[in-house]
Design a binder for these strands. Sequence first.
DNA 1: TTGACAAACTTGTTTGAACAAGTTATTATT
DNA 2: AATAATAACTTGTTCAAACAAGTTTGTCAA
Lengths: 237, 237
Amino acid sequence: MTKNKYFEIYQSIKTAITNGVYAPESKLPSEHTLCQLYDVSRNTIRRALEVLAQEGFVTSVHGKGVFVMAKPPLHLLVGGLQSFSEVSAQTGIHVETTIPVFETMVVDSQLAQKTGFHIGSHVFHVVRIRTIDHVKAILDENFFDCTLVPTLTRSICEQSIYDFIEHTLQLKINGAQKAICMEQASPLDQTYLEIPSHQFVAVIKNTVYLETGQQFEYTESHHLPEKFTFHTFARRA
Amino acid sequence: MTKNKYFEIYQSIKTAITNGVYAPESKLPSEHTLCQLYDVSRNTIRRALEVLAQEGFVTSVHGKGVFVMAKPPLHLLVGGLQSFSEVSAQTGIHVETTIPVFETMVVDSQLAQKTGFHIGSHVFHVVRIRTIDHVKAILDENFFDCTLVPTLTRSICEQSIYDFIEHTLQLKINGAQKAICMEQASPLDQTYLEIPSHQFVAVIKNTVYLETGQQFEYTESHHLPEKFTFHTFARRA
DNA sequence: TTGACAAACTTGTTTGAACAAGTTATTATT
DNA sequence: AATAATAACTTGTTCAAACAAGTTTGTCAA
């Protein structure tokens, strides 16, 4: 399927770990042995192992070997960059989306401070409410650069914006800076999530970049505090 | 100083970016050019660039070049694994630590569920209050595996536990699974952070592993909601 | 049995090379 | 001048090799 050897080996070892073929706290076969198993060079094995180490599945120790973590990560989206529709599609949870706000606006100094876009630039402003099991759970407020995403429509926002951006517009997303914090419920939260003003909400602030390094999106995801969790794996420098 | 070429090149390019030598959204010299600049092989250059891409400083585009991100990360601790004393030492903020709880205990089923340690194992239980500018800001609740950290004392907890673990005990830390969520203030929070019971606090749950993959620590950091922020960079799969 | 030493492992770093594949600039053709 | 083919870039993947450096094992001598 994929023609990258290192990625197939990465997947192969990962499923072997999650299936218990390689037990937690046990040692993987040596790199030399894995070379023979997969019939590739040591560099290719090491590249697969590096990704596994990055995601918290294994840890290599100089002179000793490569060990399986005591508790390999369960959530495949390890602090990753997945859109809401992708997550809901994988988990099979049924979600309804309503769009109370869909407009274009010019960035003033206050909005530039918030979103990181330049003053005077034109952006789409979209607010989406995610309803899970008939409970309003998430409020997403998106800002897209109009010059990079010119043909956005309301109906696209009801489906998957990322699918549209990546497949229709052929834009390639590199990654996002994420800031997680807690804030008092904003007027938007009070209106659309029906939260009293003094209560806190969990906020993820995403500044999203294309492969060229340009910022093309700023998004805030406001979550009900009880429903919110964020998982990631951090390696020690 | 450090004898790793790729790491020195990584640092060199990173400071060049933060100092504006390589402007945001501009293109870095080609890998071939960088090879000549630093007099190393292309693989070594690529390794340095890979780390920079991981941290959100640059993004490579097949066939085009390596671009500097529009807004390279400011916070050097990018969702990283730094102890509290290390952060406060870098930022120069003065912090006072009080330790209301320092004890050993046996893990029961409830605590095993919470911490991930096995039932019946012995752990140190430490609660530390961090006071910043005479305001109680953070409550840290640590659980350490007694077999791995046998000689822990109260006075060590007043200083830096990680310094003790890494330098005195010579244990090497691989990384930590982090779960960030919001919870109603616990009895500990109510007692030591003086928070009313119905209010929420921001909680970071860390499961920390040694280089061998063994879990040796579980820690919860409870933060006042107004003071809490967590930064990270996520790459698109 | 104990200790010291060497050999045989392990992973970590670096080099050089070759080819694949995407993008840009040049050139030739019409 | 516009177009198409080509060449000259760029990064992406993989290989083979050598050496460094940490860990374990085995051997031999005291």
